[in-house]
């Protein structure tokens, strides 16, 4: 399993578009928003938590179709399915690799983007916490969508239609956590809910993804 993780990471780095692309996309979203809504600092500060979360969501979505598609094309997914490790484990590792290449860089870089959007200094900490807790759920749910569409020729658009509704609860609690952090309000409820959603999806969704892959490779 660790070998698989290292392989996926190595592939992501060497094939290009792994660490950098998602981050660059995030930067572009953050840059475009002030052009759209105007440069007033107070407006930007108000919408910053939402924009940062939406940006993270879209950046995550961009790279989803690559999770299984490349392995499906060159046949290594068949090998992974027949390998002596459980497919659920393979899926979890794939999600972890996806998170390390897209989610983690976003978490690390988020405070910088927060400054660009004039996010309140108190909220910086909560932004990092919220993204750190929430992005694993995005990656795991993304593997489910990718598993459903792995055999399809043009699955990209369908993938976003399938996956985005699943992101709603994570987005609500994640953005609410940052908003409350910025306003100096009690953060416990959204924090616990966000952590709960992530824990549940990380534990349960790989089973659904594995089932979908088995169907697709039948």
């Amino acid at each position: 399993m660790i070998a698989l993780l290292l392989r996926d990471l190595r592939l992501a780095v060497r094939a290009g578009g792994g660490f950098g692309l998602g981050l660059a996309f995030f930067l572009i979203v953050v840059t475009l928003v002030p052009f759209g809504v105007g440069p007033q600092q107070e407006i930007l500060a108000r919408i910053a938590p939402g924009i940062l979360w939406i940006g993270a969501l879209l950046a995550c979505l961009l790279s989803l179709d690559r999770i299984f598609a490349l392995d499906y094309e060159d046949g290594s997914l068949d090998l992974l399915v027949t390998a002596p490790i459980p497919l659920e484990g393979v899926v979890s590792i794939k999600a972890l690799a996806h998170w390390i290449t897209t989610g983690l860089p976003l978490v690390v870089a988020a405070p910088v983007f927060g400054i660009l959007l004039n996010l309140a200094p108190d909220a910086q900490f909560w932004l990092v916490v919220a993204l750190l807790l929430g992005t694993p759920a995005l990656s795991v749910l993304g593997t489910f969508g990718a598993a459903l569409t792995v055999g399809l020729k043009r699955g990209g658009l369908l993938l976003s239609l399938l996956v985005l509704p699943f992101y709603v609860p994570t987005l609500i609690f994640g953005a609410e956590l940052v908003r409350r952090g910025a306003g100096g309000m009690a953060t416990q409820t959204p924090l616990l809910m966000l952590a709960g959603i992530t824990a549940a999806t990380v534990a349960l969704v790989p089973f659904a993804s594995a089932a979908a892959i088995r169907v697709n490779l039948r």
């Binding site: 459903l148 699943f166 709603v168 609690f173 809910m193 659904a208 169907v215």
Partner: peptide
């Protein structure tokens, strides 16, 4: 079928999240 099962869970979850929101 799998989508329907997982979707049902998340539709309910989204509902409660929306009430919180």
């Amino acid at each position: 079928g799998v989508l329907c099962l997982v979707g049902a869970v998340f539709a309910v979850l989204s509902r409660y999240a929306a009430y919180f929101w």
